[in-house]
Each structure stands twice: as C-alpha cells, then as structure tokens.
Design a protein around this nucleic acid. Structure first.
Lengths: 203, 203
DNA sequence: TATTAAACTGAACACTGTTCATTACTTTTG
DNA sequence: CAAAAGTAATGAACAGTGTTCAGTTTAATA
C-alpha cells in the first residue's frame, strides 16, 4: 500500500525537476526572460503540465527566491568566525557587496524584483531571508553591547545599515551610476563603504 | 516654403500626443503594464504608427524617465530657500522620501526599473537626473566647508547619502520589509532617517 | 479484465512587441 | 489641373508570452 507514498515522492521529484530546470534557465537568461515554455521544453513536458505542479510562473520563481537566500546565508557563514563584532559587521558588509556582484540574478529576485514577493509571507523564502536580517541585528546588538556602536534601537540601526548596503548595490546593479566618469566610478563603492563604516564607528 | 517646418511641427505634436497618452496610462497602470496597443488605442491610431515616431517601447518610457526627473527637481526646489546647508540637506532627504511615496511609479523608472536605462547617456533624462545629483553634491560641499560635515571626498559622501536614501525607499517600495511587524514598520523610515542624520552629523 | 482515478497534452484564448507590404493622403512637378 | 513623387498610416502577420481546459493516455484498483 505504498502507492500513495510513492506518488507523493514522484510529485516532489517532478516539482524538483521543474525547479532545477527553471533554476538553470534563470541563471543563464535572467528573470523575466525565462518562459514556462522554455522550462517545459527543457524537461520535455508540455507547458500545461507545469501548471499541475505550480500555480503560476510566480510560484516557480518564488521557490528560487528561497534558494537565493539559502546561498546568501551560506555566503555569510564565513564571517561568523570573526570574534570582534564590529569587524564581523564590516566583514558582513564586504561579503554583501561580494555576493551582490557575484550573483546579480539572485540579488535581483531577493531584493529588487517585484514579482516573486506577492506570495505567502510565512514560507521558506521569507524565513531564510529573515535569518539573514536576524544575523545582522544580533551583530548590531553585540556591537552596541560592547560599546562599538552608539546605543540605539537595534532594529532601526540594522535597517539603516541594510538600507545603505542595498541602496549602493542596487544603484550599481541597475546601472544608475552613469553620471560618474569611469574614473570616479572606479572604486566608488569601496570608498563609500569605508566612509559609511567611519560614520558608524566615529562617535 | 513653410511646409517642411509645419511637417516638423506636426511630427513634434504627434510625438507629444503619444507621450502624453503613454504618460497618462503609465501613471494609472504602471510600467510593464502599458502596451503599445494600449497607447495606440488611446490616441486612436494603429500600433504600427507609433513606430514611425519612436524606435521602440523603451524609447517612449525613456522620455517619461526624463519627465519624472523634471518633476523630482521641481519637488526639490523648495528646499533651496533654506539657508543653513545641513538643514537643507536634511530637508532634501525628507523631500526625497516624500517624493518616493507620492510618486512611486516615477521613482521606479528613475531609480529601479532596468528597462529605460539602455539609452544614450547624454540626453534629457540623464541631464535632468544629473542636476539632482549635482544639487546634492553642492550641498554636501557646503556642509563640509561650513564644518557641519567631516572633510571627505564630496562625490563619495554624496553617493553614500544617496545610496542610503535609495536603499531605504526602494526596500519599502519593493515590499521587502515584511520581516517587520506592523508595529515595527510603523515609522521605521522616519526613525532610521533620524539615526542616519545623527551618524552624519555627530563627528 | 473492466472501471475508476490520476497524469498529461494539444489546442486554444487573449495578450505582447515589432515588422512590412499595401493603401491613403499630401505635396511637388510637368 | 493631372500625373508623379513623397510621406503618413495601417492591416495583417510573425514569433512570442502566461494560462486554461476538454480530451487523451497511463496507471491503480475492484
């Protein structure tokens, strides 16, 4: 009587097959550029079949959104070995920048695209995303406790830092730095990051 | 022999007709949601006609991009009456936030959307956008000269401020603050802005 | 093996941006 | 004024999109 169980396994496998295919296409083509027909063709099924496993295109990319956050958290892992909380904070910022430009397509669905966000709030993608934010908040809290940051509401300060990081990265990703000459632009992000760290510290 | 001139006027008029229609539709429907057929229908021409006046859809929205920046600069005008440069800087930040949430669709094409940016670098849209940035830079320069901001490279510091403003506003616009409870979210932007201003000032 | 249930698909719907041959209109020339 | 030339506008088509659904194929059960 293990039929039901096997069917369930098959369903999960099929979902994974679709997702893997979508993932691969997504990384090579970008977000809006991948079509249901593309995915269907890659796995040699009819486009209609995909709708038996996912509500719509959005649901597929929402799943990728979760994976992107997993990769992001993985990326951050290395900084947690750093003892000094402020140094850890700085390292986290550097890793953030690194991740952004190493995986721009992930960054896009994580923080910029509007499509995949219209989903349920309490599911894998958001949970994984929440973890990253909590990590930042706990570092900020530590920095405050150790007197390396001025005492301030942790959530608000963490959000302020996140805002800056995201603003800078997304302006570059979305090509909004054309006002600057090649020369000015060269190293702008690194210089700005140093300034921001100074702003945080010097008080 | 005023025929050529009249023809040229007609051409400009037609371009304006298309642009106005696109503008209106854009404000009510959003960016990707407006189709060439929508615009054509609104002005009672065939879709193909539009391609006699604009290279593609992108070129149409690039023009709107310029208008958005004009509106933005208009919006900022009021702060220039403020004598004290730091107060002017703060007021500019407040206006920036105000503009973002008063005209989210403008903000989107100005700073977030990737579509209309693939155009020539030295045209109206970018010039108008450059003006806004120059305004910020000159205020920052003034603040430094008057000792209200620590001496630092103007361009980099201005970019840092812009990054923060943009990051915060775009995270909210693109609905990336679901991690926060309604309570936390309430006033988060204002609180963060205050913190950021403190970071800038206290040194 | 016949029946029931689940899985899958072809074709269609209503769209999209864009192109191009053909038609309609306007201006210039003989 | 009529014919030729030039410009403006369009209908229809192309190749694509997300999505739905009636109908077929495949698998499990009685």
């Amino acid at each position: 009587m293990g039929v039901k169980e096997r069917k369930e396994r098959d369903r999960v496998d099929m979902k994974e097959l679709i997702l893997n295919s979508a993932h691969q296409l997504f990384l090579s083509k970008g977000f809006e550029e991948v079509s249901i027909r593309n995915i269907a063709e890659a796995i040699e099924y009819s486009p209609a079949t995909i709708y038996l496993y996912f509500k719509d295109k959005n649901e597929i990319f929402y799943a990728l959104h979760g994976e992107a956050f997993k990769k992001f958290n993985q990326y951050m892992q290395s900084v947690f070995t750093i003892k000094d909380p402020f140094k850890r904070l700085v390292a986290m910022g550097e890793k953030y920048i690194e991740f952004t430009f190493a995986h721009p397509k992930y960054y896009n669905i994580m923080f910029i695209a509007e499509a995949p966000m219209l989903c349920e709030e309490s599911s894998e993608g958001w949970i994984e995303g929440g973890r990253a934010l909590e990590a930042l908040e706990s570092i900020v809290a530590e920095c405050i406790k150790e007197g390396q940051l001025k005492k301030q509401p942790v959530k608000v300060l963490a959000f302020t830092i996140w805002s800056y990081m995201h603003g800078m990265c997304s302006l570059e990703l979305r090509d909004r730095m054309k006002h600057y000459t090649e020369e000015e632009r060269e190293g702008m992000i690194e210089k700005s990051f140093k300034i921001f760290i100074h702003l945080l510290k010097n008080q």
